[in-house]
């Protein structure tokens, strides 16, 4: 192991070189997709590694003019919004007594949610499909996908929110109580507003997980009800000859999750950090 013994607080040329390599490898595929969308299939076939020449907007225009694309984007958005709303509301409600009440079954109850982390959707996927389509009659609907997704997002939500709620100063609650506020009133008017940063974190995590989900929508949604990941995957198999079109479609589908995540990066990072630290 070769090492740089001096000034290890700052980076030497080696560090910058590694950083550059990381940037190239990380962004390479994304840029390839974005740039490939500006090229024609002939250009891509002639030289896969070249820049667009000339730059063509038609693939992107084609995707944006495609009714299917907007339909998938709408489905993805609505399903992600329902998932987020249900997961965050039910999650913060459950995390509240787990953080602020003393009762005998508190820790076992919390353990139920921790154990929930261990149940991958894949294990339950086939019965879930039968339950949603036959028993609940929600096959091929927004709610049919959103409710199970919210349920599977709950363990993470509760596990992240509980320490947030625990950290709220107790005096506020006590003061409100002496003033005659009910616990439910305290929850709505004090705990919820004060734990907003935590709610944003879990909300974004639930939203992005739903936006990116594939397995459950794959089984439950068909035709016009498909979400963007399904649309992208199907487009890529149906138009396998149209590489440039596939790349343009894929690139546009990336954008919303990227923007959301980058805009709220700090929140998400601190949330993940809070959840992960032993």
């Amino acid at each position: 192991m070769k090492r740089r013994a001096t000034t290890y607080g700052r980076g030497g040329p080696f560090v910058y070189l590694v950083a550059l390599a990381v940037v190239v490898v990380t962004l390479g595929p994304v840029l390839y997709g974005a740039l490939g969308g500006f090229r024609s299939n002939e250009q891509l076939a002639r030289d896969p590694a070249a820049l667009p020449d000339p730059w063509l907007g038609r693939n992107y225009v084609g995707v944006l003019g495609n009714d299917g694309f907007w339909r998938y984007a709408l489905n993805s958005t609505v399903i992600a919004l329902i998932t987020t709303a249900v997961a965050v509301l039910a999650g913060v409600m459950a995390a509240y007594p787990l953080a602020r009440y003393q009762f005998r079954f508190r820790e076992p109850l919390f353990l139920v949610f921790v154990l929930g982390l261990l149940f991958p959707a894949a294990v339950a996927i086939v019965p879930l499909f039968i339950l949603v389509t036959r028993d609940l009659g929600l096959g091929n609907t927004w709610w049919g996908v959103a409710l199970p997704q919210a349920a599977f997002a709950l363990p993470t939500t509760v596990v992240i929110l509980r320490p947030f709620l625990m950290a709220l100063p107790k005096e506020l609650e006590e003061a409100a109580m002496l003033d005659g506020a009910s616990r439910i009133g305290i929850f709505w008017r004090i705990a919820l507003p004060l734990s907003m940063p935590g709610l944003v974190t879990v909300g974004v995590l639930a939203f992005v997980a739903s936006w990116n989900a594939y397995l459950l929508p794959l089984l439950l949604l068909q035709g016009d009800m498909r979400t963007l990941p399904l649309g992208v995957a199907d487009y890529s198999t149906e138009h396998s000859a149209d590489t440039a079109g596939v790349l343009a479609f894929t690139t546009i589908a990336m954008i919303p999750a990227l923007i959301l995540f980058l805009a709220l990066q700090r929140r998400i990072v601190s949330g993940l950090q809070g959840a992960v630290k032993g």
Binding site: M93, P97, Y101, F103, L131, P148
Partner: peptide, 26 residues
């Protein structure tokens, strides 16, 4: 007790219907 039940019921119901039941059903 009622308050605790009120707060955790929606989450537990969701988990029971969409996580626990399908796992047992599998």
């Amino acid at each position: 007790r009622l308050e605790i039940l009120f707060f955790v019921a929606p989450a537990l119901a969701l988990m029971a219907i969409f996580v626990v039941y399908p796992v047992f059903s599998a």
